[in-house]
Computed example of a mutant assay.
Amino acid sequence: MRPGVHVSPAGPDDLDTLVELCLTARTEAAVGAQLCTDDADRLRDQLGVLLGIPGGLILVGTVDGTPAGMLLARLVGPSLFTDAVSLNLEAVYVLPDARRRGLGHMLLATVAQQADEAGATDVYATPLPGSRGMQRFLARLGFAPAAAHRVVTTSALQRRLAHEGAGAARRPAPRGLEDLIARRRQVRESRSASAAVDQASVSITMQVNRAVQMRRPSASSSTTW
């Protein structure tokens, strides 16, 4: 343990401190809206819920007795679809002035111990897009890419679905295998007909040329006027 750096489980008395840390992290993040709400009262209620639900984990870190970091996580599983237990890291944040003091490592070491005691086999983290510092930090600790996440607002998704649905209604239904075979047969027949027309044109041209040659006077004959 580094001098002056301490990590402990959060309690109800730490909610105001956690709200301040979350709001500070939100202003620092390029996409803060994906991190948390900017409504302090609502954020306090949400953090209180995380503290109270089974598997909810919140750690508070201090440097020289001053709150300087936090970790939000949740133990997940076993569930209907898996017997495995995993730890989901929702957020890890350290104030800029308190960085490079080992607080981030201590927060993760503490939660890793809790995950191990709970039988969690994997630890998942979802760093926000653009948080390169956190990406590098997690990579140094062995975190590897596991999946790609995409996000869309509910209203935007509904608009796109409505637009796609209207477009699908205007478009003809997808053709089945039989229609595909029929189209290919039509293409072959069209090509055969085109080839027959080309052959007929060549034959007619040859016949015309032959007839002209038969009517043309020979080169040795002469004409007198």
Score class of each variant (00 low, 15 high):
Leu18Thr: 02
Val19Ala: 05
Cys22Arg: 10
Leu23Trp: 13
Leu23Glu: 01
Thr24Lys: 03
Thr27Glu: 13
Glu28Thr: 13
Ala29Gln: 07
Ala30Gln: 12
Ala30Lys: 14
Ala30Gly: 05
Gly32Gln: 06
Ala33Arg: 10
Gln34Leu: 15
Gln34Cys: 03
Gln34Gly: 06
Gln34Glu: 05
Cys36Pro: 03
Cys36Thr: 13
Thr37Lys: 02
Asp38Leu: 04
Asp39Val: 13
Asp39Ala: 12
Asp39Cys: 11
Asp39Phe: 06
Asp41Lys: 04
Arg44Met: 04
Asp45Arg: 13
Asp45Trp: 00
Leu47Ile: 11
Gly52Trp: 08
Ile53Ser: 01
Ile53Lys: 12
Ile53Pro: 00
Pro54Glu: 15
Gly55Asp: 06
Gly56Ser: 09
Gly56His: 11
Leu57Asp: 02
Leu59Phe: 06
Leu59Gln: 06
Gly61Val: 05
Thr62Gln: 13
Val63Ala: 13
Val63Pro: 03
Gly65Phe: 03
Thr66Ile: 14
Pro67Lys: 05
Ala68Met: 03
Ala68Trp: 06
Gly69Lys: 01
Met70Phe: 11
Leu71Cys: 09
Leu72Lys: 10
Leu72Gln: 13
Leu72Ser: 10
Ala73Pro: 02
Arg74Trp: 04
Arg74Gly: 07
Arg74Ile: 09
Arg74His: 11
Val76Leu: 15
Gly77Glu: 01
Pro78Trp: 14
Ser79Tyr: 02
Leu80Gln: 07
Leu80His: 10
Leu80Phe: 15
Leu80Asp: 06
Phe81Ala: 13
Phe81Pro: 03
Phe81Asp: 12
Phe81Gly: 10
Thr82Ile: 12
Thr82Gly: 11
Thr82Pro: 01
Asp83Tyr: 09
Asp83Asn: 09
Ala84Gly: 08
Ser86Asp: 14
Ser86Ala: 14
Leu87Asp: 01
Leu87Tyr: 07
Glu90Phe: 11
Ala91His: 01
Ala91Trp: 00
Val92Ser: 03
Val92Lys: 00
Tyr93Met: 05
Val94Cys: 06
Val94Met: 02
Pro96Thr: 04
Arg99Trp: 00
Arg99Asn: 05
Arg100Lys: 11
Leu103Phe: 03
Leu103His: 04
Leu103Asn: 02
Gly104Asn: 05
Gly104Leu: 07
Met106Gly: 06
Met106Asp: 04
Leu107Thr: 07
Thr110Lys: 09
Thr110Cys: 05
Val111Lys: 12
Ala112Ser: 15
Ala112Asp: 11
Gln113Val: 10
Gln113Glu: 15
Gln114Lys: 13
Gln114Ile: 12
Gln114Ala: 15
Asp116Asn: 09
Asp116Glu: 15
Glu117Gly: 14
Glu117Ala: 15
Ala118Asn: 08
Thr121His: 14
Asp122Arg: 15
Ala125Glu: 02
Ala125Phe: 09
Thr126Val: 14
Pro127Thr: 08
Leu128Thr: 04
Leu128Gly: 14
Leu128Ile: 07
Leu128Lys: 04
Ser131Ile: 00
Arg132Asp: 15
Arg132His: 14
Gly133Tyr: 10
Met134Glu: 02
Gln135Arg: 08
Arg136Glu: 11
Phe137Arg: 03
Phe137Cys: 03
Leu138Ser: 08
Leu138Thr: 07
Ala139Asn: 04
